[in-house]
Design a protein around this nucleic acid. Structure first.
Lengths: 121, 121
DNA sequence: TTGACGTTTCCATGATTATCGAAATGAGGA
DNA sequence: TCCTCATTTCGATAATCATGGAAACGTCAA
């Protein structure tokens, strides 16, 4: 029963810290929007207005946290969001920070992206 | 249709940073477990093995981020998790970091205790 | 009013993070 | 091979964060 491997608190701290910066959160959102094809380092830097070395500094935090993947395409280095990692990240928050037994937190209600999924629950 | 007021990226960075520390994440989880009754500052410090001034330092980060509430009960100061804030926090992540249009991220799947969802995609 | 308790503020110290320029590395194209 | 482009590494600097002791503050009981 694939219960989505639960991340440990130590990793959570690393991942939270990785996202806890204006530029890194922006970079991550950029990669989420781009999807699996990803975005080249230089283009991320350009869109965020960062010098190359700063981009590397920030994106390596995301890389170390396992939130993004890295691959090489010719001369470019392409970064892409790791959705499985984000899955585990959010899963931890919902299971550990949303009140187990407490009903005050309604995690699933807000999403429903936009495609009408007739999910009964 | 109460769509859960969407937090802005700036607040997200503040909240992420607030949780991105071993002691603060532990404190927050403690408060989540305690629920609405909350826990006194001294007891949080004792359970986490922190000196009073350090506890104050860390918990004020959570307070500034709006993730916890503070109230006074006699000589004690009681802190409690703000579940609405965590709701918004997770909501932002699911809407902005989970791939809009991309199906690779299955936000709600992990929680749903264990009922078999026949999600084809 | 006095005293004890719980908590916060203040202060100094050390550690970590963020930034940018310059140099080094790696990967094509001529 | 030589040159250029894309990215990373290195080094220095400034800023922010984390820690704990000591003092101050507010609250309650006697």
């Amino acid at each position: 029963m694939e219960t989505s491997n639960q991340p440990d608190p130590h990793w959570m701290v690393t991942a939270l810290a990785a996202l806890a910066h204006e530029h890194r959160l922006a970079a991550y959102r950029l990669l989420v929007e781009a999807g699996p094809p990803g975005v080249a380092a230089g283009e991320i830097a350009a869109r965020l207005g960062l010098v190359p070395s700063s981009l590397t500094f920030h994106i390596q935090a995301l890389l170390r946290a396992g939130l993004v993947t890295q691959r090489r395409a010719s001369r470019h280095v392409i970064y892409a969001a790791d959705f499985a990692a984000m899955n585990g990240f959010i899963g931890f928050l919902m299971q550990n920070c949303c009140g187990q037994g407490v009903v005050a937190c309604a995690p699933c209600a807000p999403v429903q992206t936009d495609f009408n999924q007739a999910q009964t629950a």
